[in-house]
Write a protein that binds this DNA or RNA. Structure first.
Lengths: 159, 159
DNA sequence: GGCGGCAATGATATGATATAACAATATCAA
DNA sequence: TTGATATTGTTATATCATATCATTGCCGCC
């Protein structure tokens, strides 16, 4: 069962990527949307790292094989991937990350290490229900949320 | 007791502003840092709205009375105000908001209305302890966090 | 008071992130 | 095949943010 839940643990990351791409193809087929070559390539580039990656860094990578790539090329692919729940944007870094829980509801919770830069996506019921309770207490109805927790991952604490 | 906890409730907002500026002067005196004219003016401009405001919108306002104002002018003031816990940045909007709980620890929790744009700062123990629990479960040590909840405020739900 | 050091601001330039608008091409169903 | 729609190409520009160095202001110290 690849798509390891922890970027901190060592693992064969090429399996993560293949798995993510495989899931993406399935999802897109189910949703009847087109995972075109550009979109798939961008998703692959995003999955090559457990760190969020910026749009212009992606562009630089993409441009190596796709000479015509320009900012809109990347941003369109990113928009598509977000709309279909395949990636998340880390708002506090203007950077993008593969979604570790495709298919589910789509607001992530992220643990972002301030040393190594990895971002681990979690999906903790205790967090979402706390948000729900707190919001209700203020008469507020949730549509979505941004949860970005900064600190030290297990590995970097031991350095 | 001004500095109302809910921008949704009607209130005399000029009191909010005066109160915020008064608190800011106190804090800066205590911390032995200078709340200069520019910094105070920027803080006042930020407090004129319960909506997060962008740096260039602030610049436009500031420039009306301060002809020399340029982007660095604003960003320096914003940095100072953030460093001293007087404002927050809303990461998902690249915009700034007065801090409703000056003096305390400094990561906010925000309820942001997708209709009217107001952002209410809350400080719910249930949320912070849920984040703490969830992080610990993953061996992660929290340094700070970004919590931005989007949805409908009480007022806009009734429209 | 004047002088030296540091904090704050001025000024210019540029970097980094993101989108608008329209043209050209590809895909696919009828 | 053709027409409708989605995708990509292309150019330009909007928006957000910082680097750098010069100048000014503040304040303690002699």
């Amino acid at each position: 069962m690849p798509l390891t839940d922890s970027p901190a643990k060592p693992h064969d990351h090429s399996l993560c990527i293949e798995d993510a791409l495989g899931q993406a193809r399935l999802i897109c087929e189910q949703r009847n949307v087109r995972l075109t070559a550009i979109r798939e390539q961008v998703l692959g580039l995003i999955w090559q790292s457990h760190k969020p990656i910026g749009a212009y860094d992606l562009l630089e990578q993409l441009a190596k094989t796709h000479h015509a790539a320009k900012p809109p090329t990347i941003y369109r692919a990113l928009e598509f991937l977000q709309d279909n729940g395949l990636i998340h944007k880390i708002e506090s870094q203007n950077a993008f990350l593969g979604c570790a829980h495709v298919g589910g509801h789509h607001h992530g919770q992220f643990l972002i290490c301030t040393i190594c830069g990895t971002a681990q996506e979690i999906d903790e019921k205790i967090v979402s229900s706390a948000l729900e309770n707190a919001s209700q207490a203020h008469g507020f109805r949730i549509q979505s949320f941004v949860i970005e927790i900064k600190g030290l991952c297990a590995t970097c604490q031991d350095l």
